[in-house]
Each structure stands twice: as C-alpha cells, then as structure tokens.
Design a protein around this nucleic acid. Sequence first.
DNA 1: CGCAAGTGTTCCATTATTTGGAACCTGGTT
DNA 2: AACCAGGTTCCAAATAATGGAACACTTGCG
Lengths: 276, 276
Amino acid sequence: MNVRRNAAVAHGDGTVGKALDVLDHVSGAGRPVRLVDLQALCPYPKATLYRLLQTLTNQGMVAHDPVAQTYAPGLRLVRLAHAAWRQSSLAPVAGPHLDDLAAKLEQTLHLAQLDHGQVLYVDKRNASQPVEMYSQAGKIGPAYCTGVGKAMLAWLPENDLASVLAQQSWHSYTAATHTNERTFRSELQVIRSTGYAFDREEHEPGIICLARPILSANGRVLGALSVTGSTATTSLGALESHAPQLSKTADAIASDLENWRFPEVRQTQQTAKEGH
Amino acid sequence: MNVRRNAAVAHGDGTVGKALDVLDHVSGAGRPVRLVDLQALCPYPKATLYRLLQTLTNQGMVAHDPVAQTYAPGLRLVRLAHAAWRQSSLAPVAGPHLDDLAAKLEQTLHLAQLDHGQVLYVDKRNASQPVEMYSQAGKIGPAYCTGVGKAMLAWLPENDLASVLAQQSWHSYTAATHTNERTFRSELQVIRSTGYAFDREEHEPGIICLARPILSANGRVLGALSVTGSTATTSLGALESHAPQLSKTADAIASDLENWRFPEVRQTQQTAKEGH
DNA sequence: CGCAAGTGTTCCATTATTTGGAACCTGGTT
DNA sequence: AACCAGGTTCCAAATAATGGAACACTTGCG
C-alpha cells in the first residue's frame, strides 16, 4: 500500500484524481466559476484544466454555461448523491427516530457523519418555528467547533483523532471557538466523561446545541445527533434537559443500524434492470 | 467538436469517463456490489476495474467495505451534490413558492428537471410535513410516463425531443403507459394545447397527477411542477381544479429564475475559505 | 481607430499513465 | 487435499494525458 499523504484528499491518483480535484473546486466555490478562477485554485496548467473541465462537462458532472463561460456543479451529482445518501448514510435508518424525537422536543435536530475530517450533515428536522440557520443535508461544517463534530471526535480512536485534528483549520468563528489542539483535547475528555458535547456559540453567535455520538456496539463512531437552539429562545441548561431523550434516540439508531446495515443476506437475483 | 454519441452518456472520454461510468454502476445497483458484480455490468477487464475502484475509493467517491468486499457510493457525493443542488437546480429559487402552494393545496408537490433524458426530482413537498431535504430529491424517473416528464417534453424543441425520445425505454409500467413514440407524440400535442399534462396512472397504479412546465421567458424548458394524489383520495377532475394555482406558481418560479439566476451581481466577499 | 491585455481554445511532439493478459494469493467448499 | 471463485499484483505494450506555445476572440483603453 502506498503511504497516504497527510494532506486531506491526495490528488495523487492519476487523471481521475485530478478531475475530481477540479470538481471539488468547482463545487466548493459556491458560485459559477470561470477557467481563470480555477487556474488560481488548482495547480494545473491551463490546457490541462481546460480538457479536464471539458470531460467533466461531457459527463454531466459539471454544467457549462456557454454564454457566461462559467462552470457549476452538474445535476448528475444530485442523482448520484441520492444513491449515496440512501445507501451510505445513516439518514434512512435514523429518519423515523428523528421524526419521533422532533415530535417530542420541538427543536431543530441535526444528524451528521464524519467525512474527510469534516462534519457532514446528512439529515435535519426543523422546529415548527424555524430557527433560520444555514444547514441542510450535504452541507459541511468544521468538526472542532460544532456539537456534532465534538461528539464524534471525542470517541474517535487516537490514530484517527490525530489525523482529523491535523486537518482542522482552528479558525476562530466566534470568541468561544477553540483555536488550538491543546484546549480542544481537554474538552474532549470532559465530553467523554459526561457523554455529551455542547456547542457554546463556538461556530455561530447565538446558536447553541447539545450533541451526542451514535456509537456501534463495539464502540466505533457512526455519527452524531444534536438538538440546536438559539440563545434567544433557549439555554444550555434547557438543552441539557433533553439529554436523556437524545441519548435514547441515539441508542435506538445505533441499534437499528446493527440490524439493518450488517445483515449480509443478499437477494441473489435482484433484477436491477429497471427499464432505464 | 466531436460528434456526440447517440447513446446516453458517452463513456468515451478517457480514464475519467470510465471511472465515472463505474461510479454510475456502483450507485445504480441500489445495494453494495462486489467486483464480480461490476464485471458483469461493465465491459472493462478485471484488473482495470479493480484499479478504477481503488482510485474511486481513495477519493471517497465510493466506500469500500473491506470485510464484505463490497463497494457503495461514497459520502463525498453527498457533499458535492449539495453544491449542485444549490447552484444548478431550480430548488432554491422554487422553494418558497412550493411552500406557498403546499400550504394552499395540502397535496404532494414535485419539482423536477430533465437530466440525460430522464426526470430528475429536485424537490418535493409532502402533504403532511415540510421537510426540505433531498430524501426524494435526486431520485430519477422515466420521462415518458410521469406528469412532470410529459410536461417538459411537450415544450422541448424538436431536435432535443427526438434525442430524448430515442433514450426512452417504453417499458409498460401499467396498462395506461405509453409504449411507443407515435401515440406519445400525439399526447404531447394535446398537452401543448391545454397547457397541462396528466399522469393517468401511467407510472404507478393508483397514482395520478397534474403537471405544468416551468418555462423561461423565451420558451426554454427549465423544469416542471406537479400536484400528485392517489385515486383513493382524489380524481383527475379534482386535480384539474388546481390548474390555475399550479400555473400561477410555475410562472412565479420562472419569473424569479429570470431575476435570480442571471443577474451577475454577486456577493464578492463569500467566506468560502473554510479552512478545509 | 487600433493597440494591448486578458481569456478561452487548439496543436502536437514528448512523456507518463493506463491497460489487460496472465500469474499469483486467499479463503471457503467438496 | 485438491479445487474453485474471486480478489490482487506484475509488467511490457499501447494509449492517453501533458503543457508550452501559438492562435482566436473579446474587451477596455489611450
């Protein structure tokens, strides 16, 4: 096996790696980008970048606007992601449990998983009175200053933790944000002992949350679940009162996962033909 | 410019094309697949397939389960798709309008676009709960036997229409399904004249809907919008009574798109930095 | 009016990557 | 023990990617 680069995604596996690297930048920009914009972000020469984008466009992975000469992530991704979300995320299994919990606590819920050292939100339930904040499935966030991120990191084995921590930016979003590994690690210890992680306005001012990890039977981190509120309408103490229910839901999800995900009994002759 | 293959996605552009072709099969299978399974679906030799999968796994595009030796679509897709959904789909602009309409009608709504000759659902409102998630978004369906599909096809220019029709499977889902181009084209004419498309249980027994296209100012097909119900609780006539409101919403979305999508004025200071 | 700067596009010989048949493992079965 | 099926590795040949440089096109400016 090759030595893994310590950088996040090794854009080292051949042409495909480069193409996906470009795709990441196209979708990461948050707005349609032009060739020059990408030239500034990617280390590839103009001609290469051009051909890569042509290929991706051809494939429907990026959409090219010929008049504005811009590239944006393509709809084929939405189609592909649906399959990923259904098969590889916790969301389908956790969904019913989120519904139940949302009905009991009238608060915003988040379900997240760890992906490349970042928090990936895979499902969400809005409170009846929507606390308007930015977060949806597919949205990513920092691991070191969100409730779900801290909850997951706290139960990560040391090897994985170290590699994840090395990828954090330690950017100071608010005054409460951890900005270094030392203090952060000490909070992880507290989280492990209490079983819960708080977000004390560390990512967004006025937004607090209580999070709990979802752990497999043998202790592996599968994801995390959180209840979120704004300081205007709730408090850390009030959130903490939901801890037992949050915990119960997280355990229920974990238990369902053991039964749903792993049973390997395969329908042998699945006619995945489906008229296309 | 190269001549475009008449097949759906030309898996002709180099290594990247092959890799994405494999990715399609992995995500299209609907369940974790093994190397042998893919060998049956893809024309690539074992060694090539193996290396391609290794690369995709490395990149997080597919998830490899080492114990079961299976591959499934990876979470990186979910992250990428979020950007695609936000930027390249009608959903963000249409969202508020869907909310309004859902509040009035209390029926299931679908928002769809055309992708590779298929219907791609990009948003949805359930009668009961307003979850704005792509639990359904990303799902694909046939264009020739769904309300949204027919609504879009009816306003497609002849060139595009011919190429889309050539890609249809004409599979007979129900007794009411169109199974050939001739009768289908004649219905398109009716749809154009009335302005609406019905799905008369052509895709799923017991499921009917009324759909209307979303057209740009210059007549280009942007997407379609539908109200869906079951024959148990509603009828074609009852659905038709919603036509004016559906139409109004579709126009409002189209109008918003003209204003929202094209204005080039952009918030320059997007903090898309995000340590990564 | 024309020059200059900025960008997208094409060319092509060089180079590096991909390819795939065959051999090699590995774990499970007869 | 031998067998089998599927996964993994090798390596010379074939192919595709590369990127510097030239070209085309548009826009802004003197």
